[in-house]
Amino acid sequence: MLALAPLLLCAAAPPPGASSCSGCHAPASAKTDVPVIAGQPADHLVALLEEFRNGTRPATVMNRIVKGFTPEQVQAIAVWWAAQP
Protein backbone atom coordinates (compact mmCIF):
# COMPACT_ATOMS: atom_id res chain seq x y z
CA MET A 1 0.00 0.00 0.00
CA LEU A 2 2.81 2.37 0.81
CA ALA A 3 4.35 1.84 -2.59
CA LEU A 4 1.04 2.44 -4.30
CA ALA A 5 0.01 5.55 -2.46
CA PRO A 6 1.98 8.02 -4.60
CA LEU A 7 0.15 6.83 -7.70
CA LEU A 8 -3.00 8.28 -6.26
CA LEU A 9 -1.49 11.72 -6.01
CA CYS A 10 -1.42 12.30 -9.75
CA ALA A 11 -1.45 15.91 -10.93
CA ALA A 12 -4.87 17.44 -10.53
CA ALA A 13 -6.72 17.33 -13.82
CA PRO A 14 -7.40 20.75 -15.33
CA PRO A 15 -11.00 21.98 -15.11
CA PRO A 16 -13.19 21.12 -18.13
CA GLY A 17 -12.03 22.96 -21.24
CA ALA A 18 -8.76 24.31 -19.84
CA SER A 19 -6.45 21.82 -21.53
CA SER A 20 -7.63 22.85 -25.01
CA CYS A 21 -6.31 26.43 -24.66
CA SER A 22 -2.66 25.47 -25.15
CA GLY A 23 -3.45 24.43 -28.71
CA CYS A 24 -3.12 28.14 -29.54
CA HIS A 25 -1.68 29.82 -26.43
CA ALA A 26 1.99 29.00 -26.08
CA PRO A 27 4.05 29.19 -22.89
CA ALA A 28 5.67 32.55 -22.18
CA SER A 29 9.02 31.18 -23.33
CA ALA A 30 7.75 30.72 -26.90
CA LYS A 31 7.26 33.99 -28.73
CA THR A 32 4.17 33.99 -30.94
CA ASP A 33 1.55 36.56 -31.95
CA VAL A 34 -1.08 34.93 -29.73
CA PRO A 35 -1.22 36.35 -26.18
CA VAL A 36 0.24 34.30 -23.33
CA ILE A 37 -2.31 33.15 -20.74
CA ALA A 38 -0.10 30.98 -18.52
CA GLY A 39 0.73 32.74 -15.27
CA GLN A 40 -1.57 35.71 -15.91
CA PRO A 41 -3.67 36.82 -12.95
CA ALA A 42 -6.98 34.95 -12.91
CA ASP A 43 -9.03 38.14 -12.46
CA HIS A 44 -7.39 39.61 -15.56
CA LEU A 45 -8.13 36.51 -17.64
CA VAL A 46 -11.76 36.46 -16.45
CA ALA A 47 -12.18 40.14 -17.31
CA LEU A 48 -10.80 39.61 -20.81
CA LEU A 49 -12.97 36.58 -21.44
CA GLU A 50 -16.11 38.36 -20.26
CA GLU A 51 -15.28 41.27 -22.60
CA PHE A 52 -14.99 38.76 -25.45
CA ARG A 53 -18.35 37.33 -24.41
CA ASN A 54 -20.18 40.66 -24.33
CA GLY A 55 -18.51 41.98 -27.47
CA THR A 56 -16.73 44.95 -25.91
CA ARG A 57 -13.28 43.61 -26.91
CA PRO A 58 -12.38 43.06 -30.58
CA ALA A 59 -11.91 39.36 -31.30
CA THR A 60 -11.15 36.79 -33.95
CA VAL A 61 -12.03 33.42 -32.37
CA MET A 62 -12.28 34.05 -28.62
CA ASN A 63 -15.73 35.66 -28.90
CA ARG A 64 -16.94 32.40 -30.47
CA ILE A 65 -15.17 30.11 -28.01
CA VAL A 66 -16.05 31.80 -24.71
CA LYS A 67 -19.76 31.36 -25.43
CA GLY A 68 -19.29 27.61 -24.91
CA PHE A 69 -18.52 28.16 -21.24
CA THR A 70 -20.50 29.38 -18.24
CA PRO A 71 -19.05 32.22 -16.11
CA GLU A 72 -18.26 29.60 -13.44
CA GLN A 73 -16.35 27.47 -15.95
CA VAL A 74 -14.48 30.55 -17.20
CA GLN A 75 -13.51 31.34 -13.61
CA ALA A 76 -12.17 27.82 -13.01
CA ILE A 77 -10.23 27.83 -16.28
CA ALA A 78 -8.70 31.23 -15.46
CA VAL A 79 -7.62 30.09 -12.00
CA TRP A 80 -5.97 26.99 -13.45
CA TRP A 81 -4.11 28.94 -16.16
CA ALA A 82 -2.99 31.55 -13.64
CA ALA A 83 -1.18 28.74 -11.81
CA GLN A 84 0.58 27.37 -14.92
CA PRO A 85 4.24 28.12 -15.62
Binding site: A13, P14, P16, G17, S19, S20, G23, G68
Partner: peptide
Protein backbone atom coordinates in the same frame (compact mmCIF):
# COMPACT_ATOMS: atom_id res chain seq x y z
CA UNK B 1 -4.30 17.55 -29.65
CA UNK B 2 -7.29 18.55 -27.50
CA UNK B 3 -8.62 14.98 -27.37
CA UNK B 4 -5.15 13.70 -26.44
CA UNK B 5 -4.99 15.90 -23.35
CA UNK B 6 -8.52 15.00 -22.22
CA UNK B 7 -7.79 11.32 -22.85
CA UNK B 8 -4.47 11.43 -20.97
CA UNK B 9 -6.05 13.15 -17.96
CA UNK B 10 -8.90 10.61 -17.98
CA UNK B 11 -6.41 7.73 -18.06
CA UNK B 12 -4.44 9.17 -15.15
CA UNK B 13 -7.67 9.50 -13.19
CA UNK B 14 -8.87 6.01 -14.06
CA UNK B 15 -5.51 4.58 -12.97
CA UNK B 16 -5.81 6.53 -9.72
CA UNK B 17 -9.30 5.12 -9.19
CA UNK B 18 -11.12 8.41 -9.61
CA UNK B 19 -13.89 9.30 -12.04
CA UNK B 20 -13.04 11.76 -14.83
CA UNK B 21 -15.24 14.85 -14.90
CA UNK B 22 -17.37 15.57 -17.96
CA UNK B 23 -14.95 17.32 -20.35
CA UNK B 24 -15.23 20.32 -22.60
CA UNK B 25 -13.17 20.36 -25.78
CA UNK B 26 -12.37 23.12 -28.21
CA UNK B 27 -11.50 23.03 -31.88
CA UNK B 28 -10.07 25.94 -33.84
Amino acid sequence: NAQAKVCADAILQLLAGTTPAEPRLINT
